[in-house]
C-alpha cells in the first residue's frame, strides 16, 4: 500500500508536467492555426503572385531548422513560431486563390480543410485514448519522408502528374504517422518543449492540407 502511494506520488509531478506540455502545445497550435488563416486571408486580399508560396515555404523551413532550435527554450521561441506559421499561411494565399478560381474550388478547399481537421483530431484522439507508445516509428517515418523528398525532387524534372498524386498520398500517410509519433512523444514525456512540439504538429497539419488540396483538385478534374 505504502509502495503504491509512493509510486503515485512519484509519478504525479511527471504526469502534471506532461499534461502541461500537451495543453500548452494544443493552445499554441490553435493560436498559430488562426494566425495562419489570418495571414492566408491577407495574402488572398493582396492578390500575391504564385512565387509567394515557394519563397514563404523555403523561408519558413530555414527559420524552423536553423533559428527556432536556438530560441526554443526562451519566450522569443513563441514569436518565432508565429513568424514561421504566419509565413506559411501567407504562402498559402496564392494557392487558395488558384483553387478558389476552379469550378468546384470552394468545395475542394472546404473538404480539404474539414478532412485535415478530421484526420488530425481522429489520430490525436486515438493516441490520447489508447496511450500507445509510437516511438518505434521514428526511423521509419524519417526514411519515408526522405524518400518522398527525393521523389519530389525527381518529379520537378520528370513532371509526371500521376507521380505527383502518388507523392501527395504518401505525404498524407507519413504525416499521419508523424501525428501518432509526435503526440505519443508528448504524452510519454519524450518531448518537453511545447514550442518544438507545436511546430512539429503544425507542419504535419500544413502538409496534410496541401496534399489533400492537390489530390482533391486533381481528382475533381477527372470527371
Amino acid at each position: 500500500m505504502n509502495q503504491n502511494l509512493s509510486t503515485v506520488s512519484q509519478r504525479s509531478p511527471s504526469a502534471i508536467a506532461t499534461n502541461k506540455v500537451l495543453r500548452n502545445t494544443y493552445m499554441l497550435l490553435s493560436l498559430t492555426l488562426l494566425f495562419s488563416g489570418f495571414t492566408a486571408a491577407m495574402s488572398m486580399m493582396m492578390n500575391m503572385p504564385p512565387m509567394t508560396y515557394l519563397i514563404s515555404v523555403i523561408g519558413a523551413m530555414v527559420i524552423a531548422m536553423f533559428v527556432l532550435p536556438r530560441f526554443a527554450n526562451s519566450p522569443a521561441g513563441i514569436g518565432i513560431v508565429f513568424l514561421i506559421t504566419g509565413m506559411l499561411g501567407f504562402g498559402l494565399g496564392p494557392i487558395l486563390t488558384m483553387y478558389a478560381s476552379l469550378p468546384n474550388g470552394g468545395n475542394i478547399i472546404t473538404l480539404s480543410l474539414a478532412g485535415t481537421g478530421a484526420i488530425f483530431m481522429g489520430l490525436s484522439a486515438y493516441v490520447l485514448t489508447t496511450r500507445k507508445d509510437f516511438s518505434f516509428l521514428g526511423g521509419f517515418l524519417m526514411v519515408g519522408f526522405l524518400l518522398v523528398l527525393l521523389a519530389a525532387l525527381a518529379n520537378i524534372f520528370l513532371q509526371i502528374p500521376a507521380m505527383s498524386l502518388m507523392i501527395s498520398a504518401v505525404v498524407i500517410m507519413i504525416m499521419s504517422g508523424f501525428i501518432l509519433h509526435d503526440t505519443s512523444r508528448i504524452i510519454h514525456g519524450g518531448e518537453t518543449n511545447y514550442v518544438l512540439a507545436t511546430i512539429g504538429l503544425y507542419m504535419t497539419i500544413f502538409n496534410i492540407f496541401i496534399s489533400l488540396l492537390q489530390i482533391l483538385g486533381i481528382m475533381s478534374n477527372d470527371d
Partner: peptide, 25 residues
C-alpha cells in the same frame, strides 16, 4: 530554386534520419 531547396532539406535531414534509425526502439 525548388530543386535546390529540396536538396538542402535532404542534406539537413540526413544526419537526423541516421540518428533516429539508430535510436528508435
Amino acid at each position: 530554386i525548388a530543386a535546390l531547396a529540396l536538396v538542402m532539406f535532404i542534406v539537413v535531414l540526413l544526419p537526423r534520419t541516421r540518428h533516429m534509425i539508430k535510436n528508435s526502439p
